[in-house]
Design a protein around this nucleic acid. Structure first.
Lengths: 210, 210
DNA sequence: TCCTTTCTGTAACGATCGATACAGAAATAC
DNA sequence: GTATTTCTGTATCGATCGTTACAGAAAGGA
């Protein structure tokens, strides 16, 4: 419907990718329109014509992040044969992603906008919802482990999901502080070490299942 | 030396306390001078005369935070009889502090300013140093456990310190998202569950010590 | 070719940012 | 009392914030 008129002089997806990088590095509040337009290589009116507002641009950048960057981490947990391997692969993929040198350290969804009272409410709500979805994804994978028999029926999937998601969020801060891959891997190993005791605790509570 | 002239009409420490609350809730960038002066009950010139700048006010607020709020959490690990109990008490104190309803959720040092490229460099450097010191404190307590014999000599104190500090940082994000005390406690239990396997791993590697 | 449509670049909008100039108020020193 | 010193309230500074008016440029449709 819009094949008339002067065509857009830039690639919208590539511009969104550049904007995502800026938000990733500086956060929502810290990324100014000057930063964004400079990185995207366009002017302010082009940005507003293509994305509506800084807020909408951020929301699109987050969606782009989840569909491109986050994929590697989260698809690992579905492929893993057991729930334990899923948590293991999930954390190891996180270590690799967060220690990459050609992207900002840590997770955009974890670090993008943490202070609701100062950032836009929609921004914070969106990120919060995505963080909650991450917990849900982990919990569902653990529940699948219960269904498939590699976890005891009394295993507290919710508690374990909270624990592993929280470990990953903490790793974002550690990575942002410049931690080495070895340091991030040490954290992952610590969290993985908790898995067997958590499963054992469920067996002790209900050794033969409910 | 400054007992002449018009006396200050407000209590400096109380004003600093109020400013700390604002920074805690909104972060460094999100806290405007309007927010700060309104909460402190003073005008801009009084703020600048007493604290120098927003940056210095934040640095003083952080120091105040560590000397007042953080104390409860960190002194627990020195009192504990064993390294394991120290980690346990440390995390449980964190659960209580982060689930308090009469203060902002999570830790000011963890959440105050995460994006170096947008926030002031001094601010980020100060918070980073304090986060690194927290890791050091945990490591030294674990090393004390090795010295006192309640941990194997091959125990990786550095790795465990990174793991528990990272767990706490993740709990800041979880708390900021509105998690219940039970959810925070579940994360703490997960991290505590890792302790025995981490100690066992050290025993397997060097069962009789080096 | 001219018209319509859409995008681009400049330039600026009002609002807010952190930070101050200035004059008056409130204390001590003499 | 007057002089001196320091703090307070108003009002504002220049800079930057996110956003937009406006005019010209670049395409298709006639």
């Amino acid at each position: 419907m819009a094949d008339r008129g002067r065509p857009r002089s830039f690639d919208r997806t590539e511009a969104l990718e550049r904007a995502m990088q800026v938000f990733w590095k500086k956060g929502y509040e810290g990324a100014s329109l000057n930063d964004l337009t400079a990185a995207m290589g366009i002017g302010c009116p082009s940005l507003y014509a293509a994305f509506g507002s800084k807020e909408n641009l951020f929301l699109e950048a987050i969606a782009h992040y989840e569909s491109v960057v986050g994929t590697e981490i989260w698809e690992a947990i579905e492929k893993a044969p057991t729930a334990r391997a899923a948590m293991q692969d999930f954390l190891h993929a996180t270590v690799e992603a967060y220690s990459s040198t050609d992207s900002p350290r840590g997770c955009l969804i974890a670090l993008g906008a943490l202070h609701q009272d100062s950032s836009s409410g929609r921004i914070c709500a969106d990120l919060r919802r995505r963080r909650a979805e991450n917990i849900d994804t982990l919990r569902r994978r653990l529940q699948r482990g219960v269904m498939e028999g590699d976890l005891p029926a009394a295993f507290d999937c919710n508690a374990a999901a909270l624990f592993y998601a929280t470990t990953q969020n903490g790793m974002s801060i550690l990575a942002r502080d410049g931690a080495s891959r070895e340091a991030l891997a040490a954290v992952a190993e610590g969290a993985i070490a908790a898995f067997q005791p958590l499963a054992d605790k469920a067996n002790i509570r209900a050794p033969h299942g409910p």
